[in-house]
């Protein structure tokens, strides 16, 4: 090998651009996950208290989303929506696809939480004549969501790690930027390794946070006995 295989000067040269790109990655993660939380909750509620046809449809949609590649879903949203007159820019399509895909996963987490609320809580709400929506919002969800938080946190990390996929529809997030830098200089090793380290670092930090959260919830659940 004629050239040194790790070039620090080149690292310093590409770092600012990668830092800028990481902002896009973080934005996609945050908005994608916010969407996933909402979609997941809607799926879970529809599946739990919706009429029969809605339940079956939701189960079907969640199953299809979970068993097919995010990449195909991304293409469908990005290339197919324009045919229905709805042209999405790459970032919006990407966030939608991430939100939908992980919403399907989150709905399973919410579902476990909802099913963990004892039946007596529903019955007490009926006996107090609370309307269904109030029952859901004030009685059931406050008990169903706290135990679901660590599992939701794990999906936040998983979604974050999948954002590089948005590079295929040319969102200028970390991976796409690294590839562009690599193709300009014919040196891929530094940018791609830096991207890998970036993800590794934040995933490890996030995983540690989720574990800490799990421990705290495990201890602090004294309030929610029975």
């Amino acid at each position: 090998m004629s050239e040194s295989f790790w070039d620090w000067a080149y690292v310093w040269q590409v770092l600012p651009e990668l830092v800028d790109a990481s902002v896009v990655t973080v934005k996609a993660t945050v908005s994608g996950f916010a969407l996933a939380l909402i979609i997941g909750l809607a799926f879970a509620i529809a599946r739990m208290i919706g009429p029969g046809w809605l339940r079956q449809t939701t189960i079907g949609i969640v199953e299809v989303i979970r068993s097919t590649p995010l990449l195909i879903q991304l293409f469908l949203l990005y290339y197919v929506m324009p045919e229905f007159g709805l042209t999405l820019d790459a970032m919006t399509a990407g966030v939608l696809a991430l939100g939908l895909h992980y919403g399907a996963y989150c709905s399973e987490v919410y579902r476990a939480g909802l099913e963990g609320v004892p039946k007596g809580q529903w019955e007490a709400a009926v006996a107090l004549n609370l309307p269904p929506w109030v029952t859901m919002k004030r009685i059931i969800l406050p008990q169903a969501i706290p135990p679901a938080v660590p599992a939701l946190g794990n999906y936040l990390v998983a979604l974050f790690k999948e954002t590089p996929l948005l590079s295929v529809i040319a969102v200028l997030e970390l991976m796409q930027t690294a590839k562009l830098l690599g193709s300009e200089s014919f040196r891929y090793i530094e940018p791609i390794t830096l991207v890998g380290l970036f993800f590794l670092f934040f995933s490890l930090v996030a995983a540690a946070l989720v574990r800490a959260l799990e421990r705290r919830l495990g201890r602090g659940s004294g309030r929610v006995a029975r």
Partner: peptide
């Protein structure tokens, strides 16, 4: 049902208080 239920109250074997 909601109108009629307002005439009736119920206490359960396992209390079913809202824990939160």
């Amino acid at each position: 049902l909601r109108r009629m239920r307002s005439k009736i109250g119920m206490v359960f074997q396992h209390f079913n208080l809202f824990p939160h």
